[in-house]
Amino acid sequence: MLFLYGPILLAPLFSVNDSIFATFPLKGFTLRHYAEMANNTGLLKALRNSLIVAASSSLIATAVSVPAAIALTRYKLRGSGLIMTAMSAPLVIPSIIFGVALLIIILRFLDLELTLWTIGASHVFISIPFAMTVLMSRLEGFDKSLEEASRDLGEGAWMTFLRVTLPLAMSGIVSSLLLCFVTSFDEFVLAFFLSGTETTLPVYLFGQLRFPNKLPGMLALGTTILMFSALIVILAEILRRRGVQSNSPGAV
């Protein structure tokens, strides 16, 4: 546990240290680095880019995954195993290979420029397996006769989706959004390969590490991101548990 979390805890520690060197012994306590961070326009721009990419890729990945997860859990499609394997490919293919392959496709075959959109598109690909896993476990968890009951009570397929499937899948959808958001926000390799003039926060951070005097500022940024990510992951987990609970049949 110490090996796992020890290094992570060093970042917050040095980020409030009143020195530009990340070494012991610590000097005084300061929030100076945090204040500087807020005035750094390059950093803020990268942050804004990251938020845009993460928000749009998580939305698109989840939106694509909802109908796919419903199709895979509700109908015994032939080749659904194959579809699942194909979709989880980004989990097992090393990011570097994936990044290079995408780079070639985008530049050579599609003849597109590298923008935030290309980063976003690659993030959609790597987020889909996470979205699918979360959504399918949610959809498999609830009684299929609920949807039949809705049909039986006079609602067609679309209204059944809106009135039963969607509300029951909502906790799964929200946790999928959060998970995809974090996945994209933290992603470095693909963003590094696929960014043009504009880039995302992790890539920007990496670029800044060459300047030693920027290090504490980066640590401050890292700490902030760490805390937000942790918050989001915890939120997603709480929502997932809540969903499972409201689904169990209660006291009999």
Binding site: F142, D143, S145, L146, E148, A149, S150, R151, D152, L153, G154, E155, G156, R163, V164, P167, L168, S246, N247
Partner: peptide, 30 residues
Amino acid sequence: VPANKRPTNMVFQSYAIFPHLNVEENVGYG
């Protein structure tokens, strides 16, 4: 003729009570 267009209603073995709705909303669903 699909289920939603038939003059029948069903009580399911699992009861299929909508977990996100209260009793009133469940009963008024149809």
